[in-house]
Amino acid sequence: MTSSREEPIRYHRDTYYLESVQQLGADAWPFAERHGLLLLKPDAIVARGVEPTLDWLATNGYRVVAAREMAVDRLRARALWYHNWHIASPERRTIADLMVELSPSLLLVVTDDRSGPVAPRLTEGKGPTAPKDRRLGELRHLLGGSTYLLNFVHTSDTAAEVLRELGVYFGARDRLAVVHDALQGLDREADARRIAANLYESAPEQSFDLDVAKSALIEQLNASNLRPDSQGTEWATALRDAWHQGTPLDPWPTIVVGASVLPMRIPPPRPIDHDVDLDEGAQDS
């Protein structure tokens, strides 16, 4: 590996990154620079967002060279977002855990014919997480969505992240198979559409309308004497109380309402030894 060395250095003790690098050897970095990973999450599946995504990729010069159905459970989700999950609120983690149970995801390996690493270019075109910051022409703007959490797609931001996430998604044999497919360079869009059709069969299309979601939850909440009004703060309290009491709620409307009324981020936590007296510690050493 001869370029962007500041990125690999960040992961020199990351097991997922090292597994990919050690398996692919000298081919690791060339592969990572020439490919990007795009994950269509369960919210994209129930929104029927695969076909618009494939059309957007083709229009923007990308080619799908491998496609896999991908089960992203709560542990794999934490591995993917390990470097950022510490600022996720507890409520966001709860909602994310509900979402990964809705459906498997669809992972695409893409490439293009332009110079420079593919991953950062793909991430820039994807658009930001915050809906207010999305712009016309970006993938997330095309797919819609009005909340921070329901953002449909995830991409590897850098070439090093491509390698790390290959380690998260796949064991050695499956990783080698998907890299082999990608290196053939064949257009695998038809494979992606076939996988999407299978996922759609087991994951019904869902409404993202907030009022519809609230109506779906209100009877279940009222039955447990949790009576939210139209104000977001009351809905937030009702959802927290329902989770605390173990009240069963329909997952999808809970996700839609929770993503709208609950906090998604918290300040970075202080180091665990933040309050340690360094002078005192030095005397003990």
Rank of each mutant, 00 (worst) to 15 (best):
D97E: 09
P204S: 02
T53D: 07
L149E: 14
S230T: 10
Y148G: 09
V100M: 07
N151F: 07
L18I: 02
E219T: 07
P104T: 05
D279W: 00
N222E: 13
R10G: 11
H83G: 00
A67I: 09
P263E: 05
D187A: 05
A236F: 11
T94D: 11
A71E: 14
D43W: 14
A259F: 02
L24T: 08
L75M: 13
A197V: 05
R121P: 03
K132W: 05
R76K: 13
D279N: 08
R188Q: 14
L107V: 11
D275C: 09
L176H: 10
D275T: 01
W243M: 12
S20W: 00
V100F: 15
D43L: 13
N198W: 06
D273V: 05
Q283I: 03
D14L: 08
R188N: 07
R48K: 13
L122Y: 04
G116M: 09
E124R: 12
W243L: 06
M70V: 04
H12K: 14
R5T: 05
Y16F: 04
P8F: 12
R48N: 13
H12I: 15
A223R: 12
L102Y: 01
A77I: 03
L217W: 02
V153S: 10
Q184S: 03
L226Y: 04
Q231F: 09
A223M: 10
R92W: 13
V21Q: 13
A79N: 11
A88T: 12
R93I: 11
T233G: 10
D157P: 11
E91K: 09
A159I: 01
L106P: 07
L176A: 15
R114N: 11
A213P: 03
S230C: 00
E189D: 05
Y16M: 09
N222Y: 08
S115T: 12
L107S: 15
G125S: 03
T129P: 08
Q245G: 11
R68A: 15
V46D: 10
G125C: 08
D191P: 12
V162G: 09
V118S: 14
H12M: 14
L98C: 10
L139R: 10
D277I: 06
Y200K: 02
R240P: 01
P228Y: 00
T254W: 03
M70D: 00
F170Q: 11
P117R: 01
E51W: 01
G49P: 00
A223I: 11
V110G: 13
G137T: 05
V50W: 00
E91M: 09
H86F: 10
I87H: 04
A203C: 07
L199H: 06
F152G: 04
A203E: 02
A96H: 08
M70A: 09
D229I: 00
R76V: 14
D112Q: 07
M1A: 03
R194L: 08
T94W: 06
D229C: 00
E189N: 15
V21G: 11
P30K: 12
A77L: 15
S146N: 13
T247F: 10
V257K: 14
V64D: 11
A242T: 07
G137V: 04
G125M: 06
W29P: 06
E51H: 15
